[in-house]
Simulated scan of single mutants.
Amino acid sequence: MINWKIRFKNPIFISQLLLSFIVPILGYFGLTAQDITTWASLFSLLVDAFSNPYVVVLVIISVWNAVTDPTTRGIKDSNLAKQYEFLKK
């Protein structure tokens, strides 16, 4: 089990998760964030990305890398991390 409540309190985790969606999509299409200048272009890019199985797999792998804790076996948080109520300082 992953302690989602505590992870979403961490801005670093949130930024990792957002970037794990954005970077593979922009990279595959050879774009930068500056190329997305309208809502229409953003919507079109997302439709193209999620219509492409290869890009979807890239995003899934990227999210997997952002979510898993490399210090524990499997995808679970450690027993100590599961007990956290607040971010550890």
Rank of each mutant, 00 (worst) to 15 (best):
M1I: 13
M1R: 14
I2F: 09
N3A: 02
N3P: 02
K5L: 05
K5M: 05
F8Q: 07
K9E: 08
N10G: 06
I12E: 08
I14W: 04
S15C: 04
L18M: 11
L18Q: 13
I22N: 03
V23R: 12
V23F: 10
P24F: 06
I25E: 02
L26I: 08
L26Q: 06
L26H: 07
G30K: 04
L31E: 14
I36C: 01
W39D: 14
W39F: 12
L42W: 14
F43W: 04
S44C: 10
S44N: 15
S44I: 09
A49V: 06
F50T: 01
S51Y: 04
S51L: 07
N52A: 00
P53D: 10
V55D: 07
V55Q: 06
V56F: 03
V56W: 03
V59S: 02
V59N: 03
S62L: 01
W64K: 12
W64P: 02
W64S: 12
A66Q: 06
V67T: 11
P70R: 15
T71P: 00
T72R: 09
R73V: 13
R73G: 09
R73F: 13
G74N: 08
I75Y: 10
D77Q: 07
D77A: 05
N79T: 09
L80S: 07
A81E: 15
F86Y: 14
K88A: 08
K88N: 08
K89S: 06
